[in-house]
């Protein structure tokens, strides 16, 4: 393999994990921006998404587009309910809200463990086969992830820009008091935002399920990565989450390909710490009030 091939290959690899990280981080940062809650259960919604996809696609043999829609609906509604039932009463305090999400995470992960068992379940590919461009090889299943994730991110962006609810959410994120004065019903925005945030994580889970298989523990790593991405991009910043996700994906991919796994991991952390110290608000974050 020559260097160019290696670079192209790494670039595409980076894009796959990068878009997945971006999908995770958008939801994570959205909830933080709007509700000031660090959602430690975010990874569990990724896990639930992958199980919903597993059941609807691998067991019920529904078309994958349908699977995605069901995933969004199920997890979105569950998320809104959880916000309304459990997080709302605790939101007054950032720390309490954070610990509550931790409790939710423990409950969700172990419920999945009880119901589905620990062993990972493989899931058939949505599209299979390999694509070759000269010496560069990709699998269709990964290309599919990139395209689908890009479409979801695009749809989300349009929603935030054009729809009334999306604009209301942005207004709340910017300044809750001002939004209230504008007549935005903040209490209705919160469950909606939370539901949407976790639905995005679930979509990521559903998309990655055929690639990485499904188990109650699949959400842990994406959660930690979302954490890092959000620091990198700036807490509460959605463009920052997309940029940070892609950047982290690239750093991981190129770092691991060129220098090995351990160097890549260290590099990642060192970089993020450096960014935090020099520019605490991340690459695209706003200064906190």
């Amino acid at each position: 393999m020559d260097l160019l091939t290696l670079l192209v290959q790494s670039g595409v690899n980076g894009l796959v994990i990068g878009t997945m990280y971006a999908l995770m981080a958008i939801g994570f940062t959205l909830v933080f921006g709007i509700m000031r809650v660090v959602n430690f259960a975010h990874g569990e919604f990724y896990m639930i998404g992958s199980f919903v996809a597993f059941i609807t696609y691998a067991q019920w043999h529904l078309p994958f587009a349908m699977t995605l829609l069901i995933t969004i609906a199920v997890v979105g509604i569950a998320g809104a309910l959880i916000e309304w039932l459990l997080i709302r009463p605790l939101r007054a305090d950032e720390l309490t809200g954070m610990i509550a999400t931790l409790g939710i995470s423990v409950v969700l992960q172990n419920s999945a463990l009880m119901y589905f068992g620990a062993s990972p379940r493989p899931m058939p590919d949505v599209v299979s086969g390999l694509v070759r461009f000269g010496p560069v090889v990709f699998s269709w299943s990964r290309i599919f992830v990139i395209v689908a994730a890009a479409l979801v991110i695009g749809a989300f962006w349009l929603f935030m820009q054009k729809s009334r609810t999306g604009r209301a959410m942005r207004a709340v994120a910017q300044d809750r008091e001002a939004a209230l004065i504008q007549g935005i019903d903040v209490e209705r925005i919160f469950p909606f935002a939370f539901g949407m945030s976790v639905a995005l994580a679930a979509v990521a889970g559903a998309l990655m399920a055929p690639v990485f298989s499904v188990s109650p523990f699949v959400g842990i790593t994406p959660m930690l990565k979302a954490f890092i991405v959000v620091i990198l991009g700036g807490l509460g910043s959605i463009p920052g989450a997309v940029l940070g996700g892609l950047l982290l994906g690239m750093i991981e991919s190129f770092g691991a390909t060129l220098f090995g796994a351990l160097v890549a991991d260290m590099l990642q952390l060192a970089l993020v710490i450096a960014i935090l110290l020099v520019r605490p608000t991340g690459l695209m974050g706003r200064k906190e009030a």
Binding site: L86, P89, L90, A92, D93, T96, I99, A100, L102, G103, I104, S105, V106, V107, Q109, N110, S111, L113, M114
Partner: peptide, 20 residues
Amino acid sequence: AGLQHIIYGAIMILVLRLLP
């Protein structure tokens, strides 16, 4: 057995919910 961690998480949430 299997419920152990679920109950643990639930107790955590309950304490926060009822005793902020």
